[in-house]
Design a protein around this nucleic acid. Structure first.
Length: 193
DNA sequence: TAGGCCATCTGGTCCT
DNA sequence: AGGACCAGATGGCCTA
């Protein structure tokens, strides 16, 4: 903080804010009467002050918008927490944990559907209403879970990527999905804790 | 007390 | 020009 007006330039006039008319050369060169000079000086000073006030107001408005934007982001994260399985200890997930957990949760759900669909195909049962094809629009965690969202740092984080969706265990290891669809996630999502 | 998490401010960049 | 988005900086709070 602080110094947010340093080195500012008067955008409307192109004049620098600092030392508007401090040079002694100015006074000696000017043929204007003293009163007119004073008027000008005062007028100019006022306009610079006005510019500063305008800029400050703009900054305050930008701060307000940024605050609201972050609040909206937090609301969205809260909504995401709301649809994720809750842990017994009721500890609130941090932001990064929420995102990672959601990532892994989606992947696990899609794996569940995929496996169920495979089993249905073996036994000749009716296919699931929600087939893997329906998830095609969603990320395809099984194939490339680490890059479906973006190339950002989070997707390449070994903390959760290398140990779960990015490099999933062998298909036969998915039995946990049937065991406990909710709390079991904590054990298979090492990236969270 | 160090470290993690968070909210806020701030300046830069891009877009409409 | 103004708003949205982003990343860095800073300070407060909490916990091990």
């Amino acid at each position: 903080m602080g110094g947010w007006m340093e080195g500012m330039v008067d955008e409307s006039s192109g004049a620098r804010s600092a030392s508007p008319d401090s040079s002694p050369l100015c006074t000696s060169r000017s043929p204007e009467p003293e009163q007119q000079q004073k008027k000008r000086r005062r007028g100019r000073a006022r306009s610079e002050a006005t510019v500063q006030v305008v800029k400050k107001n703009r900054r305050l408005k930008a701060n307000d918008r940024e605050r609201n934007r972050m609040h909206n982001l937090n609301d969205a994260l809260d909504a995401l927490r709301g649809v994720l399985p809750a842990f017994p200890d009721e500890t609130k997930l941090t932001k990064i944990e929420t995102l990672r957990f959601a990532h892994n949760y989606i992947w696990a759900l899609s794996e569940t559907i995929r496996i169920a669909d495979l089993q249905a195909g073996k036994t000749g049962d009716a296919p699931l209403l929600l087939s893997p094809a329906c998830l095609a629009e969603a990320p395809s965690p099984g194939s490339d879970a680490c890059s479906w969202r973006s190339s950002g740092s989070s997707s390449s984080s070994p903390a959760y990527c290398a140990s779960s969706p990015g490099s999933p265990a062998a298909p036969e290891d998915y039995s946990y999905l049937q065991q406990d669809a909710l709390y079991g996630f904590r054990s298979f999502v090492p990236g969270i804790y």
